[in-house]
Write a protein that binds this DNA or RNA. Structure first.
Lengths: 124, 124
DNA sequence: AGCAAGTACTGTATGACATCAAGTACATGA
DNA sequence: TCATGTACTTGATGTCATACAGTACTTGCT
C-alpha cells in the first residue's frame, strides 16, 4: 500500500474481494494446480499485475475449507509435487453468483466514476 | 461477510479499494458534505447497495490525512452542522490515476471472468 | 407538546484478507 | 555446482469496511 500508483496504474489490492471468484473461474474448464493458476493470472494481465503466491495459497485454503473446491495431489511421482484443485458443485454455484455480483458492482462503479464503456467511448 | 449473496447479488466488500476513488469522484464537480456523499452513493446504486456511514467517515479522515481533500465546516449557523470537503490538487491527480487503475483492473477482471461487455453481449 | 424518524457527525472494536518475509524441496540448464 | 525456476507452506503485519454505540439537532405527525 502507499504505493501511490506507479506509472501504469495498477494498484495492488484492487482485485481484493475478487480473488476467490477469479480462482473459481480458472477452474471452470479443468482441474488445475496452484502454481498453474498463479501463472495464468499473471499472464492474463500481460504481466502488469500479479496476485501474490501467498495470496493465492491462502485463497485455496479458504476455498477448500468452504467446500467450494477439492484438493488432491497429482501423481507426478518422479518429483515436483503438484496439488490440484477441482471445482465442486457448490463452488460452481458460488461462481455464478459471484460473477453476477461482479457485473452489478462493476456497473455501479462505472456509474459513480463515469467510466462506463459506451459505443461513443474512446476507451474501447 | 459470509453473507452468501442474497438474491440480487451485491456482496459487501466488493467496492473495497474503490471507496477513496468514489469519494474523490463525488467531489469533482463541487464541494459536498459527508452525509450528502453518502446519500449520493446510496442513490446511485438504486438503493441496492450502500457504503456504510462509518466507512465513509473513516474514508474522509484518511483522505484529509493524506492531503487529498480539505475539510471545513459549513455556516449553517442556525443548526445542523455540516462538514464540507473540497478536492485538493493532489486529490485531483490521485483521482485521475485511480480512475485509470480502475479501468485497467476492470478490464483484467472482465478478461479473467469472461464478462467483458461486447456489442453482442445481451447484458447491455 | 411529545415523539418518532431523519439528518449529520464521531469513536472504538473487530475481522477478513492481501501481502511480506522467510522457508522447504525438487528440477534443470549453463 | 550453482543459480534459476517450479511448487508449495506458514506466521506476522497492515489496511480497510463494518458493527456497534453513541451525540445532537430538526422536522413531520398526532
Amino acid at each position: 500500500m502507499t504505493e501511490t500508483l506507479s506509472g501504469d496504474a495498477f494498484s495492488a489490492d484492487l482485485l481484493r474481494g475478487h480473488t476467490d471468484t477469479i480462482v473459481l473461474g480458472a477452474l471452470r474448464g479443468a482441474d488445475r494446480y496452484g502454481f498453474e493458476i498463479y501463472k495464468a493470472i499473471r499472464d492474463a494481465t500481460g504481466g502488469r499485475h500479479e496476485v501474490k503466491e501467498a495470496t493465492l495459497y491462502a485463497t485455496y485454503r479458504r476455498l477448500v475449507k468452504d467446500g467450494l473446491v477439492e484438493a488432491y495431489w497429482g501423481d507426478e511421482s518422479q518429483g515436483g509435487r503438484r496439488k490440484y484443485y477441482r471445482l465442486t458443485d457448490a463452488g460452481r454455484a458460488v461462481y455464478r453468483t459471484n460473477v453476477a455480483a461482479w457485473v452489478a458492482t462493476r456497473d455501479v462503479i462505472d456509474i459513480l466514476l463515469d467510466t462506463a464503456p459506451t459505443a461513443k467511448d474512446h476507451t474501447r
